[in-house]
């Protein structure tokens, strides 16, 4: 474990990911001039990712990442995960370094794992939010408590598509986290071949109270 928990596999993964797709951050659509790209919760990302990711890369079922390992890296649902693998202290956290593995995912021989894919590759200063852990010791103890993570797979009726339980902010690209070998097993979808995720899945944020419709009073 110690041996593989390093960044040595970075180069190997870079090559693996190059095999998967072309330019990651280049926009796919030719938008109308003067119209911002980031509307509809940056929904363009889903369509771009869908077009750029080959089907085999969306259908992998490695299953090593689980919700438990996922939350172990986080302080609360939605917090940026810490970096679980070793990185050289000289490492600057530049986009190219991280994105070579986390842009498109792929197998990392040194870690014997598939790299998770970031849903927001356009944010280039990775270390702004994601930091490594150099010591397990705390400075002082802390009485931090988190809320429970959102319950997943909570469809409104048997077999209906579950709503999106989390906010879409920084998590706009469904395909990044929910398909392929790098995806957390419990939230990986089996139908990556569908391209318009929000055709069936709409946000119903777990931490927001459910509203009941009532007619406006006259």
């Amino acid at each position: 474990m110690k041996k593989t928990d390093t960044l040595m596999g970075r180069l190997g993964l870079g090559i693996a990911s190059l095999c998967l797709a072309g330019a990651m951050t280049a926009g796919f659509a030719v938008a109308a001039p003067g119209i911002p790209h980031d509307f509809d919760s940056k929904g363009e990302k889903i369509f771009n990712r869908y077009n750029e990711t080959p089907l085999p890369a969306m259908t992998g079922t490695d299953g090593k990442r689980t919700l438990n390992t996922f939350y172990e890296l986080r302080q609360y649902p939605g917090s940026p995960p810490r970096i679980p693998h070793k990185i050289p202290t000289s490492f600057s956290g530049e986009i190219f370094e991280c994105i070579s593995c986390h842009g498109r995912g792929g197998y990392v021989a040194e870690l014997d794992a598939y790299a998770p894919v970031t849903p927001h590759p356009e944010n280039e200063a990775c270390f702004q939010c994601h930091v490594p852990r150099l010591t397990e010791k705390l400075f002082v103890e802390n009485d931090w408590q988190s809320i429970e993570p959102p319950v997943i797979g909570r469809p409104q009726l048997g077999g209906s598509p579950p709503p999106i339980p989390h906010s879409l902010q920084l998590r706009e690209d469904c395909i990044a986290c929910h398909t392929g070998n790098g995806a957390v097993a419990e939230i990986r979808v089996e139908h990556g071949s569908r391209g318009n995720c929000r055709q069936c899945h709409v946000p119903m944020v777990a931490t927001k109270p459910v509203k009941e419709f009532t007619r406006p009073s006259k």
Binding site: F28, A29, V30, I35, D40, G43, E44, R198
Partner: peptide, 27 residues
């Protein structure tokens, strides 16, 4: 996605989810 030789042009008065998926959005 399957055929690779397919393009989608969104010709519209407003930019929408369809424009986002299109190869070209013309207003």
């Amino acid at each position: 996605k399957r055929k690779k030789d397919v393009i989608l042009i969104d010709f519209a008065t407003r930019t929408t989810r369809t424009s986002q998926a299109a190869d070209k959005s013309i207003l």
